[in-house]
């Protein structure tokens, strides 16, 4: 699609520039190139011993640490989940405020392009193995924002998704059912989304780049 509307000028700090390093080299920096995200992750094999991997998988299933990133409206049902009524702590589920310590990313509903960028960055920061749960219609096929210019329609185009939960929005009980299903998949050793992402990195990256044009982000925190 080609629009006639003029492209706005590139902001100063996003223009390519040449800098001199302390040891005298000159290098060109393109802020719009995503240095972080362009280093492909590697496929990490499972533990050699089946018994050990089995133990690890059991522990992974029983210790789901959710990244505390409420990406969409589904985040509102995460709070009842962690409070007295549903008390997900008793299932080994808890919030972590940093992607480094989380192994489960709950995409709570629709993702705007702007959030998708942060989601990808966060996801890539999470350690392998990591899991993604898509919450609600929006992650499956766009939901009620199927025609919006600013929300993606299919999450699996950009990240490997382990479990989808139908609903708009899904209730906490449905979320718990989703987590149970995820646990089953993890225990069965089938939740290899992180490795799948690494294997098909180019495909995922191409999809991501089709919708995100501006890759400029502060280099921490997401």
């Amino acid at each position: 699609m080609k629009d006639d509307f003029p492209t706005p000028p590139v902001r100063d700090e996003l223009k390519k520039r040449v800098v001199e390093t302390p040891d005298g080299q000159t290098i060109e920096i393109d802020p719009l190139r995503d240095y972080y995200c362009q280093s492909a992750p590697t496929v990490m094999p499972a533990a050699y011993s089946k018994i050990v991997e089995g133990l690890f998988n059991w522990a992974r299933a029983e210790s789901l640490w959710i990244l505390g990133f409420g990406t969409g409206c589904g985040a509102i049902e995460m709070r009842p989940l962690m409070t007295p009524r549903f008390d997900a702590y008793r299932y080994g589920i808890q919030w972590r405020p940093t992607p480094r310590q989380s192994n489960l990313f709950v995409i709570s509903g629709y993702l705007s392009v702007k959030t998708l960028k942060r989601v990808i960055r966060s996801y890539e920061q999470m350690p392998n193995p990591k899991y993604v749960v898509g919450l609600g219609s929006c992650t499956i096929n766009g939901g009620m924002y199927f025609d919006s210019y600013n929300t993606i329609t299919r999450l699996d185009q950009y990240l490997p998704v382990d479990v989808y939960i139908a609903g708009c929005m899904p209730r906490p009980e449905a979320l718990l059912a989703g987590f149970e299903e995820l646990k089953r998949i993890i225990r069965a050793g089938k939740a290899e989304g992180a490795n799948q992402y690494a294997e098909q990195f180019d495909w995922y990256k191409a999809n991501q780049k089709r919708v995100i044009h501006d890759w400029d982000m502060p280099d921490y925190n997401w």
Partner: peptide
């Protein structure tokens, strides 16, 4: 402000077709 890296017609203008855009860029299932 709200959008990031938007390079097309400003979206609230009537001549911007959001469904067409979505179908082309986000590719429904």
């Amino acid at each position: 402000f709200i959008l990031e890296g938007w390079i097309r017609t400003p979206p609230y203008r009537r001549d911007f077709d959001t469904l067409k855009f979505s179908d082309e860029v986000f590719a429904p299932r």
